[in-house]
């Protein structure tokens, strides 16, 4: 047998690493947010004054709105595509499933920075692929400077984000579908149910918890993403693709306002922890 102390030794290395570089910095950020800063050093205790600035910070609210739009777009597009493609694939040969899921997942292996660079080209107004294809299809007038125009910048970026994410949704949905009892599908087929009916009445309801997991996961990701925006638009044009993480980055490194950057970080942390806590409670329910 073993003592409690011996068991602790197993957790200790991970705890030390995690404590030093994640947990303690979070506490520090919370503390920093209570002070006003000058040139990287603490000037005075400010209480909640950094937080009261949030109310009138339009960039903050715009950014938060973009994070929310990003979450909704992710729910509409990659999740739905993932569900449909996974349920089509599930009825194909294992060989095809293996090849196709590798193809769909491939973009996820590419660093987001590189994905951002690639999609920046695709959207380029002069030599980009998208305008080129529209031209070829005789729809040249639909073309535009996708990432430079306020109306299209955020949605265009989201399509690039979706490119790296829907393969993951397919993988998760596929492994969930494969755990559904096949006799359900067989019985439905014998009763003459079409593919659409089986999808609607078996697959979708039985995958509810998987959809919930992916939905909450993408909501959290929608709050956290940074790379894709930073290498393409840096939040521009204007503030049209600004998100919380880019607002934090700019406030910290470009403006040098440590206290306010810390307050923004705390807001971000509170949001993801709330969504995370909610996910845990919902998904743990039997």
């Amino acid at each position: 047998m073993y003592s409690s102390r011996q068991a602790w030794l197993f957790v200790l290395p991970a705890l030390l690493l995690y404590g030093a570089f994640v947990a303690v910095p979070i506490l520090q950020v919370a503390a920093y947010s209570m002070f006003s800063w000058d040139n990287g050093s603490i000037k005075a205790f400010g209480g909640l004054s950094n937080y009261s600035r949030l109310v009138s910070d339009n960039v903050f609210w715009t950014a938060l709105g973009h994070n929310a739009i990003w979450a909704v777009l992710t729910l509409c597009f990659p999740l739905l595509i993932g569900l449909i493609l996974a349920s089509i694939l599930a009825e194909r040969s294992p060989r095809l499933v293996k090849v196709m899921s590798a193809v769909y997942f491939l973009p996820r292996t590419i660093p987001l920075v590189v994905a951002g660079i690639i999609w920046g080209w695709i959207y380029n107004p002069v030599f980009g692929l998208l305008n080129y294809l529209l031209d070829m299809a005789g729809l040249g007038s639909w073309g535009g400077a996708w990432l430079a125009e306020p109306g299209s910048a955020l949605i265009s970026l989201n399509a690039a984000g979706a490119w790296t994410f829907y393969g993951f949704c397919i993988l998760i949905y596929l492994s969930a579908i494969q755990s559904i009892d096949p006799s359900l599908y067989e019985a439905a087929s014998l009763d003459g149910a079409s593919w659409g009916q089986r999808f609607r009445f078996i697959t979708v309801p039985l995958l509810k918890s998987t959809t919930l997991f992916l939905g909450l996961y993408s909501a959290i990701e929608a709050m956290r993403f940074f790379d894709l925006v930073w290498v393409t638009t840096q939040g521009g044009p204007g503030y049209d693709t600004e998100v919380l993480t880019t607002h934090i980055y700019k406030t910290f490194f470009l403006v040098g306002d440590f206290g306010y950057a810390a307050a923004l970080s705390v807001v971000l942390l509170v949001i993801v922890l709330l969504v995370g806590g909610l996910s845990y409670r919902i998904l743990r329910q039997p």
Binding site: V22, T245, S265, V266
Partner: peptide
């Protein structure tokens, strides 16, 4: 820690 975004700890 599953949900902690890197940008939120960078300040400290």
């Amino acid at each position: 820690g599953l949900v902690v975004p890197a940008p939120s700890v960078i300040v400290a």
